[in-house]
Design a protein around this nucleic acid. Structure first.
Lengths: 240, 240
DNA sequence: ATCCCTGGTGTACGCCGTACACCGATGCGC
DNA sequence: GCGCATCGGTGTACGGCGTACACCAGGGAT
């Protein structure tokens, strides 16, 4: 805005563009974020942005990763429950700071690298806490089928049909996100997983989470739970 | 498409517009649904639609309610758990038939009447099953913080500041959705609810659901749960 | 016969994302 | 020092969007 017009403007960069986009969405809302408004914000002509992001979708991808990067990494020195709880609440705080983010995340057709990295670290925490690959898998779905808003599928819907391309994709996956790969490649679990990386039984995952909650509800009901005590699990006490 | 052009076209109506919109979104995807494409589908000029829906947002509202209307009403003759389970799974089936619907629901700024009616009937089931108003409230949040995608706030964010308008809104609410009203007006619960209908402590609701899940996870882990058995809760057995 | 009301039409505006041609500066091989 | 490619910003233009607004055909009430 107040910068000298003409030559004196700081040079654009993918990073500057992304940051400005996040700020603009925070301030004016997602619907006010257009390539044109963002360009104006940066004192630049709309088409200039396309030298730094391929298109608006990629801009949104970048914004998601910028938000996800704000999630504090797990502190590895506590039990799994404390660590996971901290991770989830940190994610929640990040998403509350950028209320547009969950909507954007949910419209991504496949998860961004930042999201994958975050999920991977949570998976790693469960594994280190003594969860089997199998249970970790379902538990991630239970958290994801909507406590978070993200999870769903790691592969952009179906994995590549070409077997060569698939093994390449898998190798890449296990290099970058070892814990996620472990789940994708799990030996046991769904006995019908004839094809490796075939995705999973969505209906099962949904009912798994649902029944977990229903079990919890019944327990609370049976013991006459009341929020006055402000303690959610029978054995948990939480501050605030 | 194939209908006689000119006079012989069946007359439009809000219902026909909504139905055509749902069909078009099912077939071509949400991003292919525009007022123009929908009008073409109906063999009509775009502006004709505006005689039946106020604008595109209201069109989307109507589509949501059309989908929600497909959810089977609870069968009242079973225990709460069976009924709720049936409701949620029926909702899920409806949403799977119309994959665009959850995205649309999540962009509504306040819940549509159909959504409210559905929630109200689920709340009623919990209440009839012996859940306190208080516990029902939290339990709905736990289900809603994201097992479903909807819930959040009943009032369009803050209730009207004018006290007269607010009591009118509340009277309307308890007439139409008595069970929801009961929760909004609950006496106990959050002791800081100095203003009636003030909304609720979102952070508390989130942690409530989170800890419920974490408790469940821990139980499963401790007992060496494996999906081979295909039974999610310790005490539940479910078909297929 | 008149009038108005309902519902479909036509035109037009301002926004959007972005393809494409262009152009000034910068840096590099000669 | 010079030609030239490369990179980052520009300007114009196109097709699509939602929708405001003026218009009009036909039918029912008066």
């Amino acid at each position: 805005m107040a910068q000298r017009d003409g030559a004196g403007r700081a040079p654009l960069s993918r990073d500057r563009v992304l940051r400005a986009a996040v700020v603009l969405a925070d301030r004016a809302g997602l619907e006010a974020l257009s390539m044109r408004s963002l360009a104006q914000e940066l004192g630049v002509v709309p088409m200039a942005l396309y030298k730094h992001v391929a298109n608006k979708e990629q801009l949104l991808d970048g914004m998601v990763d910028a938000v996800v990067a704000e999630i504090e990494p797990p502190a590895d020195d506590a039990d799994w429950r404390t660590v996971v709880r901290g991770c989830v609440l940190s994610a929640r705080r990040a998403l509350l700071r950028h209320p547009w983010a969950v909507r954007v995340i949910e419209t991504r057709s496949s998860p961004t690298p930042g999201v994958l990295a975050h999920l991977d670290s949570v998976v790693g925490t469960f594994r280190a806490g003594g969860f089997s690959v199998d249970l970790t898998h379902h538990v991630m779905h239970a958290l994801g089928s909507r406590v978070w808003g993200f999870t769903q599928e790691v592969f952009p819907s179906p994995p590549p049909p070409d077997p060569e391309a698939r093994t390449a994709a898998l190798r890449e996956l296990s290099g970058r996100y070892p814990h996620i790969a472990e789940i994708v490649l799990r030996g046991g679990g769904h006995e019908d997983a004839s094809v490796v990386g075939r995705g999973c039984d969505d209906q099962f995952e949904f009912e798994f989470a649902l029944d977990l909650l229903l079990d919890g509800f019944e327990r609370l009901r049976a013991q006459g739970w009341s929020s006055a005590a402000r303690s959610a699990g029978e054995s948990r006490a939480q501050g605030a």
